[in-house]
């Protein structure tokens, strides 16, 4: 068996004294593991860092075998990611989310999104919002997607400011008013992809929203704790956003 694909390193595990088992998110073959011979050498160690994009050739005698990777560096992001808290926690948090997916199950959209977000992690205005969209995309691929396009009660497509914690569907301001305390806040940038302005309050609401549904649908049923890197990333992203826009820390209403 042999295939060639592009992949992003998620993590490594030592194998013997000189090799590693690499866990990569590939475009066409999903999350895949394989041995890299000599992976602990001085030459390969900088290449095999989480976040780096690689050209991979996987070989095994049978498809169900672990197999071996031959790797070549395509994009060395790890050095840049290591410079900031948002970078290292971001790559670890997204890798933890991708580990929720079954092995060898193709999720090309998530692979592409992962690459785009890794390239945007040094832009605080985008990093947090993109990460939340990534969490929602993972939820969707796991079969627990939220419907944020129309109000669950009235069907209207505007004025959506809540999400029902039961159904995961958006609720308009008018329809949700009587149950406002029980509903989750829906920040404006999530249903409206055109909305570029994301402030710290909106981002905190978005982290709470995606965290709630990840907990309810994924972590709790599997009996696992949310990854510590998620909390660290949320803290770092909010801090970075506040530092990048200390004056205008809240988005202005259009026309005001």
């Amino acid at each position: 068996m042999e295939w060639r694909d592009e992949g992003i390193i998620l993590g490594l595990r030592k194998h013997g004294e000189t090799s590693v088992i690499a866990e990569v998110m590939t475009k066409a073959h999903g999350r895949h593991l394989g041995i890299v011979r000599g992976g602990r050498s001085k030459r390969l160690q900088p290449v095999l860092q989480p976040g780096n994009s690689l050209d991979l050739v996987w070989r095994a005698r049978l498809d169900e075998h672990l197999g071996q990777f031959q790797v070549e560096l395509l994009d060395a992001r790890a050095g840049r990611l290591m410079e900031s808290a948002i970078g290292v926690h971001g790559v670890q948090a997204m890798a933890a989310l991708l580990r929720l997916l079954p092995e060898r199950d193709s999720h090309a959209r998530l692979h592409d999104a992962f690459a785009v977000i890794l390239d945007s992690l040094d832009t605080p205005e985008q990093a947090g919002a993109l990460y939340v969209r990534f969490e929602l995309a993972v939820l969707e691929d796991l079969g627990f997607g939220l419907d944020l396009t129309a109000c669950a009660a009235t069907g209207v497509r505007s004025g959506l400011i809540y999400v029902s914690p039961k159904s995961g569907r958006a609720v308009s301001a008018e329809a949700g008013a009587p149950w406002a305390e029980k509903l989750l806040a829906l920040p404006a940038f999530l249903p409206d992809r055109e909305q570029a302005c994301v402030d710290a309050v909106m981002l905190a609401q978005a982290f709470k929203l995606s965290g709630y549904f990840l907990g309810r649908h994924v972590f709790e049923p599997r009996g696992v704790e949310p990854p510590i890197s998620r909390e660290s990333f949320c803290t770092a992203a909010l801090r970075a956003l506040r530092q990048s826009a200390p004056v205008a820390n809240s988005c202005q209403e259009p026309g005001s």
Partner: peptide, 11 residues
């Protein structure tokens, strides 16, 4: 100077 090492450093 690995991602895991630097994650620990930032933590």
């Amino acid at each position: 100077a690995t991602v895991e090492g630097q994650t620990t450093a930032h933590y």
